[in-house]
Amino acid sequence: MNRRRGTGSMWRMAVVAALAAACDSATIPALPGPYDFRLAIYGADGRARQRTFHWDRGAVVPVYVDDEPVGAGALSQAFRRAVRAWGAAAVFGEVRLRETTDLGEARAVLRWHDATGVLSTPMTCLGPVTGAASTLGCLNDPRDALRTWPRRDGEPSQVIYRVVIRRTDDRELLDRLVIHEMGHVLGILSHSPNPSDIMWAGPDLPPAPTARDRSTLRSLYQTPVDLPVESASPGE
């Protein structure tokens, strides 16, 4: 008799636990509002249009890290920290970066500024390269889509962004620069107006994406794309 009562109370506890779980509604911490993540593209009429680009939701974006020694150099290490930093921001699995040694599948190339590089540089992809780092994409002729960046060896390319970092011995600075540039690769194509964010354009970047940076990435991946990637890879 006693034992049966024990069984019943244990079962009741299990049911209560299950019900408590089913009714559980944890408070969702609020993130600050996002900043504008769009790219201003100037048309022939001189007017700027704001365009949104991001990868397909759930995409794993392969990045070719052109480093020496391959996979063990400072640039590769900084890239891996950037993968973790943005991974921690995209908790709903919106997007993820990964390193690839296969240039054929790469969607971005990361290299030092003084390396020869695996991409050729057509005039349409040139832009101002100033400061410590840059991320560049190529626009098609009507300037309404991103086109793939041609490879130096003439093989087919899927590369959309070329990221160049000036050499530095300052590992912390390098990490922050690479995180910032990878923010562009993920689709944050403008800069935060707030100097404390990783996507601010100035020096003294924070060590990791801030709550505002995370909020911006999350918001970006819920916004429809109107700057697509041109499907065919055009010849040079």
Partner: peptide, 22 residues
Amino acid sequence: AQWHEFDPAALAEAGAAAGAVT
């Protein structure tokens, strides 16, 4: 039915919550 708490600090920092998983 199984039930457990699931609330890594990383989640809260990222502006997300779960509390518990069944």
